[in-house]
Design a protein around this nucleic acid. Sequence first.
DNA 1: CGCCAATTTCGTAGCGCTACGATTTTCCCC
DNA 2: GGGGAAAATCGTAGCGCTACGAAATTGGCG
Lengths: 353, 353
Amino acid sequence: MDSSDVEEGSPAVVPGRNRRRMQSVRMVDVARLADVSPSTVSLYLRRPSSVAPHTGSTIERAIKELGYVPNMVAGGLAAAGSRVVSIIVPSLRNAFFAETVSAMEALLARQGFHILIGHTEYSLEREEELVRAALSWAPAAIVLTGLNHADTTRTMLAANRTPVVEMWETGDASIDINVGFSHAEVGGMAARHLISRGRTRLAFLGARLEEDTRAAQRCEGFRSACVEAGIEPQVVRHSAPASTEAGGILLARALAQGAYDGFACSNDTVALGVVFEAQRRGIRIPRTFSLIGFGDLEFGSFCDPSLTTIRPSADLIAKNVTELVLARINGEPDIEKGYRVEVGASIIVRGSS
Amino acid sequence: MDSSDVEEGSPAVVPGRNRRRMQSVRMVDVARLADVSPSTVSLYLRRPSSVAPHTGSTIERAIKELGYVPNMVAGGLAAAGSRVVSIIVPSLRNAFFAETVSAMEALLARQGFHILIGHTEYSLEREEELVRAALSWAPAAIVLTGLNHADTTRTMLAANRTPVVEMWETGDASIDINVGFSHAEVGGMAARHLISRGRTRLAFLGARLEEDTRAAQRCEGFRSACVEAGIEPQVVRHSAPASTEAGGILLARALAQGAYDGFACSNDTVALGVVFEAQRRGIRIPRTFSLIGFGDLEFGSFCDPSLTTIRPSADLIAKNVTELVLARINGEPDIEKGYRVEVGASIIVRGSS
DNA sequence: CGCCAATTTCGTAGCGCTACGATTTTCCCC
DNA sequence: GGGGAAAATCGTAGCGCTACGAAATTGGCG
């Protein structure tokens, strides 16, 4: 009954005969043309210095002639790891993150890495999905924003030896590598600055504080620094994302509540909205109140009044994250789990305070 | 759960072979636990409806229990095509493109696609590299910005059957699919609007026109519409990227050149810079001059005066690009090479004119 | 000119998954 | 309950490349 005695002379029709090819020109074609083995071509592509110069140039010529483009998918599979870095941010519409991603893309592209991107819209569930998706590409590293993640996300990442960098926020509960600064400290700086200007009736104008946990931390830092100075600040909230519109709404709401003489904002975009609304109402800044933003966005130097703000060195974050990712990938030994870089933040005093 | 090194009993006693595993849990493990063949697991993952409900739920349970994450790299290789869409934009710092990428990412993620991103900084050589890199991932589609590409880029893409969408600009020389609008027409609209306001001494304030070919087209459209109306406009240039700072510089430069009464700007950010500079100089807008921007960025409604602008329906671009990409991937027959969607642009008249 | 080490090149066996066709099971109706 | 169609499941052969170890070649020097 077994099929063990198949004695038919004709070779059984083999299944899976005509599969679709992904590429027309493969490494083997280059090898053939350059009259070397595929191994040598592969080696040349990965470590040109290990191939004799003459052989190298022959291969180079063959690649050009055939227009060969290496297949990263196959390469990634064979090498058990792809040259992809997955970056997950809350939102690209937010200038900070757009900037960071942009800077990292430029730096990593130079090292032959590609960027897979995802945005969470501040949802931990969405982040979890994105991390799962990212992992399925066997990335060289995963870069997350902030330290606040779903438990499942942490578990998934822990079960994996992919380097993980959490950026834009520092703290103790980091998964692996951590680059950023303390948002509570930034909030504190804002409060102390306003107080140093003699302001005492203070409020924090916050957009989307429930979701944007980093803004919430700045708010909390602001609060405690005020309390420390014997001042009880107000927090005015708006549930929409930070925008100039939100800034206008928040100022209106604050003015309806009381006579404040100092405002710290979620970020510079909100602060700009405050400036606009004040202009419309004929309120003079900083005569009537002092205003401080966060982020040092470009327009802050040029609006009228120019914005006092706190600059979070986004470029330093991008630079450090990139360097650490590369160091980790190259197996540098001193970049251990728990490695942390504080990039700090500096206050930039301008016209609005 | 998973130990870091894999030494599951495998009969690999063959001449010292030990490669590194990419994953600890593979599809075969899920199959084993669910007591089905790997094929069935694969089928379930790709077309759940083709698997008996009971089998499906058994597999589902096994996946959960093992924490299995499919390997897209292996899947992509086997299926001759990955679920990646590569998007190449000039810059993520530019709000338009950040917005578009963001919208597309959200829409495509819903369909199980991932976004590989690159930015060219307006360099055609860089774009070429990025396209080459993109192709090496065998993406489901490639999305480019604009119609202006290096010859080699065109050749590479032509040698490939990957769907290509060029967005944000329409014209005749498109590679494959084209979604956008005519920038010359936008420039014309701006000119005609200023003229309709009785303005006759007109100038275009342009940032980075040498590189940003779309801004250059708006400028050219502006010019010809002016000429058509018997007006000879001036073009004031600044070689730095569009920013509020550039707006200030351009206004200063224009005022030093002559007495203009109408300005069209590269985009809203530049226009905002003009507003700021005018404020500092005590110039009243629109009493002294009318101002029109481009892009309908968020702050435009809220600054003082609010900005008259031209809105390019970025969301429509993102929506159309995404839909066309999906249609093409699903082999819809009527989306042929040369398919074009004009999303148009509409003028939004506000306080600055 | 022979010997050994260093340099360069090569052959082979997968990486984990999916397409394809074949095989088995289920279902329906006479 | 038997026959045939439909549904469900399976077995196999790669997809294109790289890691690995081994083989071939070169070079230096006694």
